[in-house]
Simulated scan of single mutants.
Amino acid sequence: MTKEIAALEANGTWVMATLPPNKKALGYVTVTTFLAVVVSRNWELHQMDVHDAFLHGDLDEDVYMKMPPGFYVGRNGMVCKMRKSSYDLRQAPRCWFAKLAASLLSYGFCRSYSDYSLFTIRRGKLELHVLIYVDDLIVAGTDL
């Protein structure tokens, strides 16, 4: 987590500010509760960082990008029609999450009603939970 926070701070992802009286701050309630359940049930826990996660999302719309200066593009005026999401696109996190969620649901996982980033599957005595946070997964259950 220290590396993730350092990367976010280096990228200028946020600035520290006082919370205005008419605003609510997003919390980590699901993560805290999830970890409390894991500890109370003595489950093994795994955290995974999905490298290049945003490059795996499928685009549902037409997006065109210019090639960086100095790269051969064939003819003047040609651009890249994106077939997959890229870190440069504002759609990237949404595309990645949609693809991962669809995959988990196809395997039989159920999405939590209270937090759409928590997925659970139960088969007999097997219980497995996957909590998604951007490009990180926390996985725990009765039998990994």
Rank of each mutant, 00 (worst) to 15 (best):
H129D: 05
Y133T: 07
Y72F: 12
P93N: 10
Y116C: 05
L128Y: 05
E4I: 04
M1F: 13
V79D: 01
M16K: 14
Y107P: 00
L59E: 00
V29C: 12
W43T: 04
R111C: 15
L144C: 08
A92N: 06
E9S: 11
A36W: 00
Y28E: 13
S112Y: 02
L35Y: 10
D136N: 14
D88H: 03
P68C: 09
Y133S: 12
S117C: 15
M78D: 12
C95V: 02
T142F: 00
T18R: 11
S112H: 07
A92S: 15
L19F: 03
T33L: 12
L89I: 01
C95S: 11
W96V: 05
T30W: 08
A36S: 13
L89D: 02
A7R: 12
K24S: 10
Q47E: 11
V39D: 10
I5D: 10
M65V: 15
R75T: 06
D49S: 06
L137C: 05
A36L: 08
I132L: 14
F71C: 12
K125Y: 08
Q47W: 07
M67D: 11
S85G: 14
W43H: 02
D135V: 05
D115M: 08
K24C: 05
K84W: 00
M48A: 13
L105S: 06
K23C: 14
V63E: 02
F109R: 04
S103I: 03
Y28K: 07
C80I: 07
A10W: 07
A102F: 05
K24D: 02
F54H: 03
L118Y: 00
L126A: 04
V134L: 09
G77A: 03
F71R: 08
A6H: 07
F97Y: 14
S85W: 00
L128I: 13
V37C: 12
V73N: 11
F34T: 09
S106T: 06
L19Y: 03
T13M: 08
P21G: 09
S40Q: 10
H51V: 14
N11M: 14
D88I: 09
T13K: 09
A101Y: 01
K84A: 07
V38N: 04
D58P: 02
R123W: 10
I132H: 00
K99V: 07
V73E: 12
F71L: 15
S85N: 09
S112C: 14
I132A: 06
N76H: 09
L126I: 13
T18C: 09
L26I: 15
R41H: 15
D52Q: 14
M78S: 13
G70R: 05
E127W: 13
S85H: 00
M48R: 13
S106M: 10
P69W: 06
L137A: 05
Y107T: 04
A101I: 01
N11K: 13
Q91R: 08
F34L: 14
A17C: 14
Y72H: 11
V134K: 06
L26F: 08
S112V: 03
